[in-house]
Design a protein around this nucleic acid. Structure first.
Length: 967
RNA sequence: GCCCGGUUGGCGGAAUGGUAGACGCAGCGGACUUAAAAUCCGUUGGCAGCAAUGCCGUGUGGGUUCGAGUCCCACACCGGGCACCA
């Protein structure tokens, strides 16, 4: 056994022995509880691992090793998320085939993981690009399809012109492509979606019971975005241009626009026929004269009915379009304050409106629609953007007041949420308020704001701000948003606050058949199609008429063909579409078909890998249900917070579907989730030179360390940024192990900060953990000769003197290590070991050579090796062997502390006067209150402090402190 | 704007409402050495003082409490997420 930490001399030996003993294979032994420890599924990048990745893997490794030693059946697997854009983009850049490249990268990962002694069961490893794996990804796709949860729709998608691929909403950041920063455009392509929205409520509800960071749960809740409200129907009314005053009663006059439209419609349809031309003129004149007198109220509908009759003779039909639309609101109580309504530019009703309004308006609407479509999400989402929109010429009837409000289109209303149309209540909604202000629309007060708000938002000095507000809310700075103030101008609902009014109005709407109370989610369906080569093929074949057929289960997997050129084509179709042997397929009924050429996005692959680890070589089923019931859920799942929403939500969704299908016994895949903090590297930047453009989100130009050393120090700005190959700031485990050793690296990763805090990497710190390991080895080796492996039978239950102190230090360390790992306090786990060793070394110096001491130290060194084992397994096994013990520490039992032995006999009591520390006293730990008080009051220092004061009260906390309150 | 985190010595950090700064890095002093490295011992929040000791001190301002880094309120700054979601 070495008496110093020379890692190169023994760490490789232990790794080899572990491997030869197949030490890390997961075993299922009856009567042992199970523990499933998992890391996020890594994409093996060409840069290899950084010490940042190793931090993640060390955490799970410590947990895994502890649980194993505590007698659990531990499953601790590792595999690779090989499919997807990062791999494909890297392959394209390197002009290599992604499969070969990924194999190489994964091998590097494996080598580096082995290098730091991670205890993965590699016999279970796989890559998501293995046909044996993605066969089952396709199989699960078919499960979703059969359950109606996979569907294809033609939809606008985010299109990245650089990556030439459609992006999921989650991959667009601020309107820019998440990966390359290119502004995203819109394109309509048929795409596959998973109906995750159907599970929105369950995904929300089941969050409550998960042991996850609150922040992550909150982010998922926000992402799902549940809101309760009312969806109701509004009817359009037609008015004469802008002349009709807003707020006119419904059923008002029909106007010229309507007549002109009818005339034009007939002319257009009947133009080739001179006779029809004549009839059209007759219609026009009839309606022209009618408009003078009869076309009010019921007269209008009568006239339209008559037109329909006439038109039938010419085989001309009135445009068959709805003239109602639905709106969703969470604030139905404010409906009396609706002064206009807004449709999304893409709303289907806009097409109807366009046909019915006068041509000038129609042009305006179309111009606006074109603008809204062309405008990228980037500018649409840019900050404090001015509201835009146009009046359509149409009016809608507010069902609560029976009065008309103008209908506008504006892009601040999104087609993708709710109904794509809103009732606008500018007095109570900031967005509507801004819109009203910009376009001169009226604002009707709905509540009386409180004085504080009035003062803060007034734009002028006035004696009676409330009167001013009620006269013209637009003179104030914004909308008054409140659920607490009673309503005004709200008919019989006046005086009610939000809760009461919303219930009453909801009931009223439902009673009228106008609509219903409804829950709306912000969550959108999961877009799965990628027009890319390097992904899991979607197992669908289309018939001649476009019918969809699932590829029969027996024919799975649909294998990704080997191709030479896997770059996407400029038209955006997958390279697979250029391979006739792939595309040409037979439908299950034996006809000629065309294979789907899109592949699935990478999140599909990572939504079930944790299940495959349970039974990775099964070729009859994705996994054995009994084994899944045995191992699931994952007990401890650790990874970066950047996957807070997407991966975790999708994996939860699939698990629920698989639960519904009876394939898994749990509704949630990950019982406990922890996010480790990022490891940041010191990274040099310089100011941009003339003509240089900054990358998205950067405020300097990234430079290399070499370049930084050539520049004047004033020109270089050092920043702490996440380690990545692209930033050139990666510290690899290889160099860390080379310089300090695997165990020093592991302990340092744990010690440097709480596991969830970001850390600024400084390799110098590793010298501390390396020194500690050296001291520990030396300490143990000095006891190796005198080590008594039968210490258990000789040990004195509760000795005094040095041996008692040794046992106390040992059992305190056991207690602390066990608790700390359990509560994820790895930094104090390591410091606890240091404290223990420091104490033992001190005690060794004061040892008297008594026989009890040898026994106590034997216990101490054996425990020290065991306590070190999860964090520093090489050193632990080296000690274990050095003490003449057999096997590996991983197979030994984790020590159990005796709290009685760990307890201190004497404690230091703090003595305070009025809460300020004035003295400390050493006392027996069992000293009672009276003894403590007496001791405190007899202290010279305390007496001095109490000079001239009267003791009012003495607070005694046994074993801790005495506080004398005096004045 | 909204939702989460965070702010403690020169640095990383520790501290179930009970002695703030454990443990480590860096620094300083010393031992060993011809010397250096390695190792070991000691020391290290600030101010005043020869010292004993005193005062100050956990982003800021209030509050609760015998007692607050810890709990409550308000604010500032930093980081992350969402962002016209009706």
């Amino acid at each position: 056994m070495l008496d110093r930490y020379e890692p190169a001399e023994f760490e490789p030996k232990w790794r080899k022995r572990w491997q030869e003993a197949d030490l890390f294979a997961a075993r299922i032994e009856e009567e042992r509880p199970k523990f499933y420890v998992l890391d996020f599924f890594p994409y093996p990048s060409g840069a290899g691992l950084s010490v940042g990745h190793v931090r993640n893997y060390t955490i799970t490794d410590v947990v895994s090793r502890l649980k194993r030693m505590q007698g659990y059946n531990v499953l601790h697997p590792m595999g690779f998320d090989a499919f997807g854009l990062p791999a494909e983009n890297a392959a394209i850049k390197a002009r290599r085939h992604p499969a070969a490249m990924i194999d190489e990268f994964a091998a590097t990962y494996r080598r580096q993981m082995d290098l730091v002694g991670l205890s993965y069961d590699w016999s279970r490893s796989f890559k998501s690009s293995d046909p044996d794996y993605y066969r089952w990804t396709q199989w699960i796709f078919e499960v979703l399809y059969r359950r109606g949860l996979a569907y294809r729709k033609h939809a606008d998608v985010n299109w990245c012109p650089k990556d030439k691929t459609a992006l999921a909403n989650e991959e667009v950041v601020g309107g820019l492509c998440e990966r390359c920063g290119t502004p995203v455009e819109k394109r309509a392509i048929p795409q596959w979606f998973f109906k995750i929205t159907e599970y929105a409520q369950r995904l929300l509800d089941d969050l409550d019971d998960l042991d996850w960071p609150e922040g992550i749960k909150q982010m998922q809740r926000n992402w799902i975005g549940r809101s309760e409200g009312v969806q109701f129907r509004m009817r359009l009314e037609w008015h004469a241009g802008d002349k009709t005053p807003v707020g006119a009663p419904a059923q008002s006059e029909a106007g010229d626009d309507e007549l002109r439209r009818l005339e034009a419609e007939v002319r257009a349809e009947a133009a080739p026929d001179p006779a029809a031309e004549e009839k059209a003129r007759q219609i026009a004149s009839k309606f022209a004269s009618a408009s003078e007198d009869v076309l009010t109220g019921a007269g209008m509908s009568q006239a339209l009915a008559e037109f329909d009759k006439w038109a039938d003779q010419f085989e001309v039909k009135r445009a068959d379009a709805p003239d109602t639309f639905e709106v969703f609101t969470t604030r139905i109580d404010t409906i009396f304050g609706m002064t206009f309504c807004v449709l999304a530019p893409e709303h289907p009703l806009v097409e109807t409106i366009k046909r019915r309004v006068d041509p000038a308006r129609r042009t305006e609407i179309e111009t606006y629609q074109a603008m809204a479509r062309a405008e990228s999400d980037a500018s649409r989402q840019s900050e404090d953007r001015e509201k835009t929109g146009v009046f359509t010429g149409a009016y809608a009837v507010n069902p609560a007041t029976g009065r008309t409000v103008p209908a506008w289109i504006a892009d601040y209303v999104l087609m993708g949420y709710g109904t794509g149309a809103i009732m606008a209540v500018p007095a109570g909604d900031q967005r509507d308020f801004e819109f009203a202000l910009k376009f001169g629309l009226p604002v009707a007060p709905i509540q009386e704001p409180d004085d504080e708000w009035l003062r803060a938002n007034a734009t002028s000095q006035s004696g009676d701000l409330l009167a001013d507000y009620l006269a013209e809310p637009k003179n104030f700075k914004g909308a008054f948003v409140s659920k607490d103030r009673p309503l005004i101008n709200a008919k019989e609902y006046t005086g009610m606050a939000f809760g009461e009014a919303a219930t009453a109005l909801g009931e009223w709407i439902e009673a009228c058949g106008l609509g219903e109370r409804k829950v709306q989610y912000r969550l959108r369906d999961w877009l799965i199609s990628r027009q890319r080569y390097w992904g899991c093929p979607i197992p669908v074949v289309y018939g001649q008429d476009g019918e969809e057929f699932l590829v029969p289960e027996g024919q799975l997997p649909v294998e990704l063909p080997d191709v030479d050129n896997y770059e996407p084509s400029d038209d955006g179709s997958s390279p697979l579409s250029r391979i006739p042997e792939f595309v040409n397929a037979t439908t299950p009924d034996g006809r000629l078909g065309r294979r789907e050429t899109d592949t699935m996005g990478g999140f599909a692959c990572s939504s079930w890998y944790f299940l495959r680890f349970i039974d990775p070589r099964n070729d009859q089923a994705p996994w054995d249900k009994r084994l899944a019931a045995e191992w699931m859920p994952v007990d401890c799942y650790v990874g970066g917070a950047e996957h807070a929403v997407m991966h975790l939500l999708y994996a939860r969704f699939w698990t629920k579907v698989l639960f519904d299908e009876g394939l898994v016994s749990v509704k949630e895949p990950f019982k406990t989730l922890r996010n480790q903090g990022q490891v940041l590297g010191h990274t040099p930047y310089r100011r941009p030179r003339e003509g240089e453009r900054l990358d998205v989100g950067e405020d300097g130009i990234l430079i290399s360390r070499d370049e930084a050393s050539t520049l004047p120090t004033d020109d270089v700005t050092w920043k702490w940024v996440r380690m990545s190959k692209s930033k050139g700031n990666v510290v690899t485990p290889d160099e860390a192990v080379e310089q300090f050793g695997a165990d020093a690296l592991r302990l340092f990763e744990l010690f440097i900060a709480p596991y969830d805090a970001d850390v600024q990497w400084d390799s110098e710190g590793m010298s501390g953990t390396a020194r500690f390991l050296g001291r520990a080895l030396r300490f143990v080796s000095e006891f190796a000769d005198g080590f008594d492996r039968d210490w258990r039978s000789k040990i004195v239950a509760k000795g005094g003197g040095v041996s008692g102190d040794v046992r106390r230090a040992t059992h305190q360390a056991i207690l602390k290590a066990t608790e700390d790992i359990d509560r994820f306090a790895f930094n104090t786990y390591v410091s606890g070991l240091m404290i223990c060793l420091n104490r033992l070394m001190e005690l060794k110096r004061s040892a008297t050579g008594h026989e009890d001491e040898a026994t106590a130290f034997s216990e101490a060194v054996e425990c020290l090796a065991l306590l070190l084992a999860p964090g520093a397994p090489h050193v632990a096994d080296e000690m274990w062997e050095g003490l003449g013990l057999e096997g590996f520490t991983l197979d030994a039992r984790w020590p159990v502390a005796d709290p009685e032995l760990a307890r201190d006999d004497t404690v230091t009591i703090a003595v305070q006067v009025n809460g300020k520390l004035r003295d400390t006293l050493g006392m027996h730990a069992d000293a009672d209150r009276e003894a403590m008080e007496a001791a405190a009051l007899s202290s010279e220092k305390i007496k001095a402090q109490l000079e001239g004061k009267t003791v009012r009260k003495v607070i005694v906390v046994p074993g801790k402190l005495v506080n004398v309150v005096a004045n």
